[in-house]
Design a protein around this nucleic acid. Sequence first.
DNA 1: GTCTATAATTAGATAGAC
DNA 2: GTCTATCTAATTATAGAC
Lengths: 221, 221
Amino acid sequence: MGRKADAPHNVRTRRARTDIREALLKSALVEFGANGFDGASTRAIARRVEAHQPQINYHFESKEALWAASVDYLFGLLGEALDGALPADPAQASTSHLAAGFADGIRRFVRFAAEHPELNQIMVHEATAASNRLTWITEAHIRPGFDAIGLAWRTLRDAGWVAPIDSDILYYLLVGAASQPYVTAAEVRLLAGRDPRDPEWIDSHAEALVAILLPGLSRNE
Amino acid sequence: MGRKADAPHNVRTRRARTDIREALLKSALVEFGANGFDGASTRAIARRVEAHQPQINYHFESKEALWAASVDYLFGLLGEALDGALPADPAQASTSHLAAGFADGIRRFVRFAAEHPELNQIMVHEATAASNRLTWITEAHIRPGFDAIGLAWRTLRDAGWVAPIDSDILYYLLVGAASQPYVTAAEVRLLAGRDPRDPEWIDSHAEALVAILLPGLSRNE
DNA sequence: GTCTATAATTAGATAGAC
DNA sequence: GTCTATCTAATTATAGAC
């Protein structure tokens, strides 16, 4: 229609939006998740929410600052989604209560991975090589969950509830198995002819993960 | 030292190499795996093997043709690594033989994922959105393995050897769980202080995956 | 705070000497 | 078949009018 590819409006209209910052954060997550830091363009991020490319440099110090702010926002959502799943002190909880909490955490994490595939997409983009961005995201956001999962798993393992698997390895088994179908959702649609965001898929997926990691749950309770 | 950033040699020397095509393929895999199709630059691919950027357009029709050739090369290696793991006709094999073959396939796939993290890295880069590249790689290279794994799993499942998990879901559980620590190896080093390419890690990882997916193997045999 | 115009850099591809 | 030089297009960031 003669509209310039980069222009978000047909007519010169000035709009004042109070939510432009959060709109840019959400748009940035989708673009950074799909294309990585270098692959995502600030033009595409702005266009997705009908903003102009220079607005990014107005609302954020740089593309890198936008990336960090969007990652903070994403891990804030993750924290809300997982809040209270694992007991603060696994040593004090009963083992069966801890196992039930672990299973609950798995189900919530699978659901979050389905709703926010950007999380693991961004980690895959960043974690192939050492970098300042990787160090920051790992220490600021990943390590707390890694420690909590490791502590809970070792408690369950030493009580004989689960298979004798190293907790570092368990962490990556769990993250990879929980995220893969949502990270590669377009492939799932082509290959299996099914949409992994379907609630039925998500439920079956979460229960499958609980069944193989915590087989004692269905037997002992 | 006054060397131009893009120039691979300090001195003007002409070199004739017979293996330049394969060297470019291997270099392309590393760059495409780490940065995705758009993120990888042909200059970086060439520089890594001390070649010049225009040599890519001489030896390959385009960046896209180089990408396809490098993916063909990678799946050729995967085919060799997995050759003979699963019986051609699972219905004819004994169930315990099939289970042993499945476990063997898991171990070989984990080892391959550790040696060639580019495979799953490239899938994550490509499979976030529908595209011609995704359709081609899925139909040409992914579907045969997907079908073989699904058939073997359903046979084992219907014989009661494994947990009652949908074969589509099982495929993505397996791929994600087998690949994650190698795809995000730099994160593992920061977070766990261990190198996942260590043979000890790879062995423990493969055995953990066999233990949770085929618990009947250690019990029944 | 929004928007246009543009500066500085880098990308893939090609022309042509050797 | 290798290599230099260069073209066109796209990138992030900034200047300055409104």
